[in-house]
Amino acid sequence: DHDVVPEDKFQETLHLKEKEGCPQAFHALLSWLLTQDSTAILDFWRVLFKDYNLERYGRLQPILDSFPKDVDLSQPRKGRKPPAVPKALVPPPRLPTKRKASEEARAAAPAALTPRGTASPGSQLKAKPPKKPESSAEQQRLPLGNGIQTMSASVQRAVAMSSGDVPGARGAVEGILIQQVFESGGSKKCIQVGGEFYTPSKFEDSGSGKNKARSSSGPKPLVRAKGAQGAAPGGGEARLGQQGSVPAPLALPSDPQLHQKNEDECAVCRDGGELICCDGCPRAFHLACLSPPLREIPSGTWRCSSCLQATVQEVQPRAEEPRPQEPPVETPLPPGLRSAGEEVRGPPGEPLAGMDTTLVYKHLPAPPSAAPLPGLDSSALHPLLCVGPEGQQNLAPGARCGVCGDGTDVLRCTHCAAAFHWRCHFPAGTSRPGTGLRCRSCSGDVTPAPVEGVLAPSPARLAPGPAKDDTASHEPALHRDDLESLLSEHTFDGILQWAIQSMARPAAPFPS
């Protein structure tokens, strides 16, 4: 592969990997390779389809078979030569091979799209000592099968071997295949498990690692696999990028399955594409389908809103127990993405979901129960707010008499603000006073009005108090039968009158 990737590009890729991570280095090298001529790309395919690569990765054979028959990708048995050289000459001794072996032994695996480039050397060096003999053996194999790289107009793939297949390693990572398949204008990513390549439709969760975000852009890794992070704060999961590491605690105790298979379609829109997988259930989501939507993949363990709600429900009964003089119970939860139609709101002032922060849900004790107040519409209280300059209440639009249902020339009671006709409430011909108009209920007259088809109010509507207090003497005590009587009149003013009279009014101040 030294004929494909020059030394300066190799060093530039290593520097970019240390600065921005393996995914960015892979993407940059792939983009550079696509700008080369067809001879360089053909050399790339020839390096990929060597015999030892085909033996190690069985899924490469179907890719090789898909090439046109007129494309010669065979390799000479006596060494490598550029395709432009007409004579089959043995190339001179390859010093770059020693360079590659020494550099890969030092860096474990470079971040390139060629056999030198995919593992994360920093994480491997940190986690190597417990498994040094086995990992050293794996390093000797890295130059042979560490990076199976493929690129063409139909298929483009980048393979990364790992030393996680050490025997006896619980939940060992089998390997990473960062794979971009450009077929019919689409893009897919796969993962390699035990020599087999699994596409998103049959993606397997190998051991402790999972394909957290099938994305090839942005600074985030394709698999949430930063070796420096180790395990999740809650004892979460091992990262795919942690090559040759000792077994780590796999999943939280509440995880239903340690080796679950995540779905390959969004649980909201039932469509495929780039998904984020939940650590607590097999569901996966688009970032845009979450509520609120996320802009980037959160670091650490992530769970959907259903799993978060289940966790909150487990903690909430203990938080609601009476604990005198104790601060509110704080339950730190990872930043969760909410699927459509589901929402768990945190306290005000918290950062938005999706940031690399930890939301704190506070379970406050329930407030003391209070008697429910009568629910009145805002339009129902409008007549009470229509007060004239002299303190006389004006008529609201649409006000109707509670007896006849007519809204023409209605009066407004100064005591309960109900609309009424003087002739309907006082049919006996009582003279109307000039000021202080009161309806039949507030004036103490319980004589029913002779209106055909309208039920008369119940005599129990009024329960006047002592006459010594004029204001308190007109406080009506309405009961269920009074409400039914008012409802039978089918008037809004009657219902409003009952609601206003049912509310307690402050006692009249004593004259000074």
Rank of each mutant, 00 (worst) to 15 (best):
P292Q: 09
A380G: 12
P448R: 09
L333D: 08
D264Q: 14
L455N: 09
L290K: 13
L352D: 01
V410L: 05
A248K: 15
L411F: 04
P249D: 11
L486H: 01
V312M: 13
S485T: 15
A340D: 10
E342A: 12
P328V: 13
P383G: 09
F510Y: 08
T414Q: 07
Q257C: 07
E452A: 04
G349A: 08
V410P: 12
P511H: 05
G402M: 04
Q497T: 11
P298Y: 11
R318F: 12
P282A: 05
P368Y: 12
G341C: 15
E321P: 08
M355T: 08
P448M: 13
T447G: 11
K468C: 05
P365A: 11
D469W: 10
P332Y: 15
C269Q: 06
A417N: 14
F492P: 02
H415Y: 13
S485V: 12
P298S: 06
M503C: 11
A504P: 05
E330Y: 13
C424P: 03
G405T: 06
R505N: 01
C401W: 01
L290G: 12
A499R: 03
A417G: 04
R323Y: 10
D470L: 10
E320A: 11
A319Y: 08
D377Q: 13
S339Y: 13
C278V: 08
Q243P: 11
D445P: 07
S339D: 11
D482A: 01
P365Y: 15
Y361S: 08
P292K: 15
D482L: 01
P367E: 05
G336R: 07
P334Q: 13
C278R: 08
M503D: 06
S254P: 04
R412H: 04
V410F: 05
A467C: 11
W302V: 13
T358M: 10
C304D: 15
P322R: 10
T358Y: 15
L437K: 10
V387C: 11
L275F: 08
Q260E: 14
P448K: 10
G405D: 02
A380T: 12
G244N: 13
C278T: 10
A477R: 03
L487K: 04
A419M: 04
V312Y: 10
L455I: 07
V268Q: 11
P293F: 15
P367L: 04
P317H: 15
P293D: 04
T414G: 10
F510M: 07
C442N: 03
W498F: 02
P293S: 08
L373H: 13
S488V: 03
W498G: 01
L333V: 10
P367D: 03
G444S: 06
E326G: 10
P374S: 13
L333K: 14
S379Q: 06
G407A: 04
H474Y: 12
L376I: 12
E326Q: 09
Q392D: 04
C413D: 01
C413E: 00
E350W: 09
G244A: 15
R432V: 04
A508V: 11
G429C: 10
P334I: 15
S378R: 08
C404L: 03
V315P: 09
Q309D: 09
C424S: 01
A507C: 14
H259Y: 09
T491R: 03
V344Q: 08
A507H: 08
P335I: 13
A428M: 13
G244Q: 07
D493V: 01
P347H: 05
D271V: 10
G346V: 06
V387G: 08
W498M: 04
